[in-house]
């Protein structure tokens, strides 16, 4: 259980996040917003990669307020950044072990975890391939494997399906669905299709402000027609956007 209260972040003149608050529980939450809405900033802050200017994050009743509590949080949090960490010169396996080491996974467990996540993302036969020679889709899968490496109970995925072709996207949705069975997963996207397929809950963010927070069905509303179309209409409705865009 994660409680986010009053998070704000400003870059120079840009207000990336304004007083953002919400709760997270098990299951998939989709963070939906246009480019520049503040999704990545929010996930970076949740992952502990960047400090917020204001606000608190509470995890299972503990406020993350110092090096010790953040360290505990980070160990149990997997994150796939928007740009997959492409470490030049490392193979898939080396990269995963490196990521595990960063999360303080015991060395004795690293081998077993590597096998498990490689299998989970279907990359076993590519374990010795250098990251630089992977296709975009495979790289995203390696990124997901990295995020799942230590079996974290909070998984943050920043635009995981961006740049994937429809087949790869379907695979990815399946992987996310599997991963979310026992975990809290937050997935950011600007694609309504992702919402339609995997979301149990949607948080719509625009200009750093939360515009909607509720079940995907509620965003789709009781309107007529195709679910994706209804979501689109709902989304544009909450951000006050122009339906013709």
């Amino acid at each position: 259980m994660i409680t986010v209260s009053g998070i704000s972040k400003t870059y120079g003149e840009t207000k990336a996040l304004v007083d953002v608050s919400f709760l997270l529980d098990e299951g998939v939450t989709v963070l939906l917003g246009r480019n520049g809405a503040g999704k990545s900033t929010l996930l970076r802050i949740l992952a502990g990669a960047e400090p917020a200017d204001a606000g608190t994050i509470e995890r299972d009743g503990t406020v993350l307020d110092g090096a010790g509590t953040w360290r505990m949080h980070k160990r149990r949090c997997g994150w796939l950044p928007q740009s997959t960490p492409l470490v030049r010169g490392l193979t898939v396996e080396q990269f995963l072990v490196y990521g595990g080491w960063l999360k303080e996974v015991a060395r004795s467990e690293a081998a077993e975890r590597t096998e498990q996540v490689l299998a989970a993302v279907d990359m076993v036969e590519h374990r010795h391939t250098p990251l630089v020679s992977l296709s975009g889709g495979m790289l995203r899968r390696v990124g997901l494997a990295q995020a799942l490496f230590d079996d974290p109970d909070l998984v943050l995925l920043d635009e995981p399906s961006a740049g994937l072709d429809p087949v790869q996207r379907a695979t990815f949705h399946r992987l996310v669905a599997e991963a979310s069975a026992t975990r809290t997963v937050v997935l950011s996207t600007h694609l309504l299709e992702d919402v339609a397929v995997v979301a149990q809950r949607v948080i719509v963010i625009d200009s750093g402000v939360i515009r909607f927070d509720g079940p995907a069905d509620e965003l789709a509303g009781g309107r007529e027609g195709d679910r994706a179309e209804r979501l689109r209409a709902g989304f544009l409705g909450v951000i006050g956007g122009d339906t013709s865009r």
Binding site: R44, A49, W79, P81, P85, V87, G99, L102, E104, Q146
Partner: peptide
């Protein structure tokens, strides 16, 4: 020169999000 790869945004963030103190890597 070898450390140049660590400047790429993703890798840097991965390090920042790691539970080990920044200087350890």
């Amino acid at each position: 020169w070898v450390a140049r790869a660590e400047r790429s945004g993703g890798t840097k963030l991965l390090r920042l999000a790691s539970s080990r103190p920044d200087h350890v890597p």
